[in-house]
């Protein structure tokens, strides 16, 4: 059950943002989409979530075109976490999480409780979500996605604006999801986070796929030089690598 982008070309506001990208995302792993600013990362994620109609090419799930799935089916299968979510009202944490059940048209009490427990939100459940700190809100919003029990989790920069401890805790939740068989695709800015915590990477540069595959290969020094224009070397061992910039 793969999520596949076939010869995908995307436009936003009349501007071309992605040109003829072919790539696939295996389930049960974390794939990081990385690339310099404006490379088309968020657009690719939106298209994978079925929220941005391709100009040409297709996104396919199990060999079926995403655009042909009914919206509710798509919503049950693909959980999408936008980059910035401003929660509009003083809605309690548990009710925000419950919104994840909307596509299922049920109360889903068990799934909501599981998501609340997984992200240790029990002590916060009655608090208005938008009054929480950035790290707490990020957990609430991820729990909202988890409550829908999607087969795929597509998250746009879920770690941005989180401190180190919260980044690690969120990453470990995503790793648990991948271990349990869900496909996880995340847009990341921080190459070290991608290198240490993702299984695969797709590197976008100026709307094209510059490299893809296991992180060790996709995030090579050569790729970093050609895409970011920076000379850099990885040091350390797998799982705790750091990127050293050379002057």
């Amino acid at each position: 059950m793969k999520l596949v982008a076939n010869d995908l070309t995307l436009e936003r506001g009349g501007q071309s943002v992605l040109k003829n990208v072919d790539t696939e995302f295996p389930p049960g792993t974390i794939t990081a989409i990385v690339g310099p600013n404006g490379a088309g990362k968020s657009s690719l994620l939106l298209a994978l979530a079925g929220l941005l109609e391709p100009v040409s090419g297709t996104v396919e799930l199990d060999g079926e075109r995403l655009s042909e799935l009914p919206p509710l089916e798509r919503a049950k299968t693909l959980g999408y976490l936008p980059q910035h979510t401003e929660i509009a009202w003083d809605v309690a944490v548990e009710n925000v999480v419950a919104l994840g059940r909307l596509p299922h048209r049920d109360r889903g009490t068990a799934e909501i409780e599981t998501a609340i427990a997984a992200l240790t939100l029990e002590p916060l459940r009655h608090r208005p979500a938008r009054q929480l700190s950035g790290g707490e809100q990020a957990r609430v919003l991820l729990a909202r996605v988890l409550a829908g029990e999607p087969r795929w989790i597509l998250a746009d920069e879920p770690l941005a604006a989180l401190d180190l401890a919260h980044q690690l805790s969120l990453v470990s939740h995503l790793q648990n999801c991948a271990h349990s068989g869900q496909g996880v695709v995340i847009v990341l800015h921080d190459l070290a986070l991608a290198m240490n915590h993702a299984d695969n990477a797709v590197v976008l540069h100026e709307g094209k796929c510059a490299a893809s595959g296991p992180v060790e290969d996709a995030l090579s020094s050569e790729t970093i030089r050609s895409c970011w224009g920076v000379d850099a070397q990885w040091i350390g061992d797998r799982g705790s690598r750091a990127l050293i910039i050379e002057h």
Binding site: L46, L72, Y80
Partner: peptide
């Protein structure tokens, strides 16, 4: 975007 991803 989140609303559309929920099938709205």
């Amino acid at each position: 975007d989140a609303a559309r991803s929920l099938g709205i």
